[in-house]
Design a protein around this nucleic acid. Sequence first.
DNA 1: AAGGCGTGGTC
DNA 2: TGACCAAGCCT
Length: 293
Amino acid sequence: MPELVVRTALAETLVPWYRAAARELPWRAPGFGAWGVLVSEFMLQQTPVSRVIPHLEAWLERWPTPAALAADAPAEAVRQWANLGYPRRALWLHRAAVEIRDRHAGVVPRDVDALLALTGIGDYTARAVAVFAYGDRHPVVDTNTRRVIARAVHARAQPGAPSRRDLADMDGLLPADDEAAAVMNAATMELGAVVCTARSPRCGECPIRDACAWVASGSPATPDVRRRQARYEGSDRQARGAVLRALRESGPLPQEAVIPDWPDARQRDRAIATLVSDGLIEPEDGLLQLPRG
DNA sequence: AAGGCGTGGTC
DNA sequence: TGACCAAGCCT
């Protein structure tokens, strides 16, 4: 029963390791606040910790509350987002701030279903906020957690395709106590981030190595179902990124003056059209600009 | 439900 | 060098 072995190891070995070795990250500071946690989780969606930290601090200095962000135009959020990537997260974070102001009196909700109803918040982010900001007991499952469970419990080198089963897996590993469960969620993510990594896991430094089903079975290669990322060079995504960068840095521009030297004019026009459709840019008096809201 | 969606660092 | 990877979400 690898689950019981792993559960015991998480409680007795992983959590003490985490208490001693956890990185000091801004959102782990006592009293960081639910808004700060929520903003950090938006930024951390597919973006590394090291790139997020400076942007997070600037963001919270400018907009210390959801209402402060909601009072500005979405254009300001997209511009402040700068080069963090996936700029629709900036748009969605702004929308979520408006929804928090209008539906929750400006207070980040604590209830998972209320969080899930906010724009840009899914299974991971909703539970991360409920657990790390409010201390409630929920399974928090991100890519790190999925990898740790795949190896330690299921003896696989890599996780399978994401599924609701992941939440049940993690829930079964958590202790009953709210506070202890929150720490275990964080510790599991930390282990996946710094030890049980995707490419070269540091099994020699792993606090739960003795309980790991994958190590016990000889660390075999197993079927890999991960999605391959499409090539970026020459892609529509690259064109969209170039368009948005130009509008962020040079203000409103005529369509023909946005990335005028782009090698593929049809791709440029397609990028502009999909950005408009996504609400990331808008045409106004013959000029393209960031959304004024 | 499979694919689209940025950007930069690493090996 | 190019492919992989990074605290996902939406349609």
